[in-house]
Amino acid sequence: MTHNYRNILCIRLDNMGDLLMSSPAIAALKETFGAKITVLTSAMAVGVANLIDEIDEVMVYNVPWVKTNEHDKSEAFYSLVEQIRERQFDAAVIFTVYSQSPLPAAMLTYLAGIPVCVGYCRENPYQLINHWVPDKEPYEFIRHQVRRDLDLVSAIGAKTASEHLRLNVPDINEFLLEQKLREAGVNEQQPWLILHPGVSEPKREYPVERWIEAGRRVIDELGYQLLITGAASEKSLAEEIAYGIGTGAFPVAGLFNLNEFIVLVARSPILVSVNTGTIHIAAALGVPTVVLYALTNPQHTPWQVPCKVLPFEVPVEAQSRNEVIVHVNKYFSAQQIPMPCVDDVLNAVKELLAGELQHPVEIQAIYEQ
């Protein structure tokens, strides 16, 4: 069957890391159909959406069925339906994590009169998703999120020549960036790398005392300065870790806007981070990454970039009540995966700096090392 999708709505309603992982699939739609691509996403992801070439237009709405910093009022939902209807899309593609339901987003496309809706679903969605791909994850297998999204669009014939994440390095005021680094105390003549300890959920945190010890050893044994990065809300955490490390560590959380932060990541020889959107920025930029990886979403490891994944279990009392995630947690709880020690972190940094680590084998990187 020949399709003529010239105006496609891609729905990716969560955070910037999720949108970056969907970018190869979005590129496949663009390359295959030559379509205008509009992305409906959250306010938390709009910054990276504007840096992906394959996206022609961005619509922003914070839905109440996805965890974001805030959600828009119900009145705005009806306005959004009309805005979507006015654009006369040929098709909509709903990108989801396997623990999410596509049905609220599908109802949105149905009300807006989009004739073709593509998405995963466990139950038969009938006319809400009329190009339905039965969702077998995670009960039969687990794929990387990028592979999951690529497989979804392949169901309507979309392919891409490159499966790399998409993200442009933005143009910024270089003088202002350098000034901020100097004012923070960073020596421009000495090498530095990034530690990114902040995360939105406490269950994904790596202990502060281990960040401090790891940071001291990176400085003492490898001679790198450390930028302790994060959002403005993570300033206290960055300061606590930097002051604990001592000379050579600089708390810069909240000093940089998103575009400046992306440039910093692009310049860092490696990134050491918890599993958050920052690791997907690094993957899109080809920056080797050490990930202190709480096993909340095991399909979200760095994609197609040299990395070391250091997994650890989420405490039982902090685990999600989502029954799909509960099913996955049973596997990892049986493995008894401990918190990575400081030696693990330091050795991973050394191996990446020496170029000794290559791309992981997608999701198997989590529990086959």
Rank of each mutant, 00 (worst) to 15 (best):
Q358A: 14
G254I: 05
H131G: 02
A49L: 07
V309C: 06
K159L: 14
S236C: 01
L295R: 00
P191E: 15
C10Q: 03
N329C: 07
N347K: 02
I84Y: 14
E140D: 14
H300Y: 08
R143V: 14
P302F: 09
P64C: 13
G157C: 09
C10F: 01
Q225F: 09
E317I: 02
P102T: 10
E70D: 12
M16T: 11
F77Q: 04
G355I: 01
R267I: 07
G198A: 14
L258I: 13
N297D: 14
T296D: 15
A249F: 00
V116I: 09
R143D: 15
H164G: 06
T68K: 11
E183D: 12
P138G: 04
V291D: 03
V291C: 06
Q83P: 09
Q127S: 10
G254S: 07
H164N: 13
I363H: 10
I26K: 05
L108Q: 11
G185P: 00
V265N: 05
V361H: 12
T229D: 00
F141P: 05
E351C: 08
Y243K: 00
E137G: 10
A35H: 04
A253G: 06
L167K: 09
A365N: 07
V274R: 04
Y126Q: 09
P288Q: 02
T276Q: 06
A161V: 07
P191W: 15
V146Q: 07
E137M: 14
V274H: 06
D53Q: 08
R210T: 09
D56Y: 06
D343Y: 08
T301P: 07
A214Y: 01
H164M: 11
P202F: 03
K159T: 15
L103M: 13
V97M: 11
R12D: 04
L152D: 15
D72N: 14
L176M: 11
Q364K: 07
V263T: 14
L19M: 10
P311L: 05
P24H: 15
Q145V: 01
V48S: 08
A35K: 03
R166S: 15
N69E: 15
P170L: 01
M59D: 06
Q369S: 12
R321P: 08
E54D: 11
R6K: 15
G119T: 14
L13Y: 06
A266V: 06
Y243G: 00
A334N: 08
P360I: 12
V97C: 11
Q336T: 04
L19S: 13
G113W: 07
D220R: 06
L357P: 00
L264S: 05
A232N: 03
A106Q: 01
S99Q: 15
L176T: 10
E137W: 09
G47Y: 05
V314L: 07
T32D: 10
I281H: 04
K73I: 09
G119V: 13
A155R: 12
H280F: 07
P104M: 02
L181Y: 03
V133I: 11
R147T: 09
N7T: 04
L237P: 00
T32F: 10
R122G: 00
L176H: 11
L227A: 01
A155H: 14
I270M: 10
A106M: 01
V326C: 10
T278L: 11
T247E: 12
G17N: 04
T68G: 13
R166K: 15
A106E: 02
G277I: 02
G17L: 01
Q127C: 04
G277A: 10
D18P: 07
L237H: 00
